[in-house]
Amino acid sequence: MENKILEIVNTVLENRGKKAIRKINPSMSLRNDLDMDSLDLAELTVRIEAEFDIDIFEDGIVNTVGEIYAKLNIK
């Protein structure tokens, strides 16, 4: 599942001409470490919802990769 998240994150980054990342870890900040803006976050949430059927931003803003895992119940 983590690999799927990494794949989705990289799709979003590459779509905006940003560099793909090799590894992902829970402490990474979506805005600061992955350099995502609101448009990127919107795309990320749509792609994750399409894959896992869970709207990760439903009740507020998710800031880190770890918070995405928590929403998707990835231990």
Partner: peptide, 12 residues
């Protein structure tokens, strides 16, 4: 449009 809770919609 595809709706989402971050920006309301994104274009697809």
């Amino acid at each position: 449009a595809k709706s989402n809770s971050v920006l309301g919609n994104i274009v697809c």
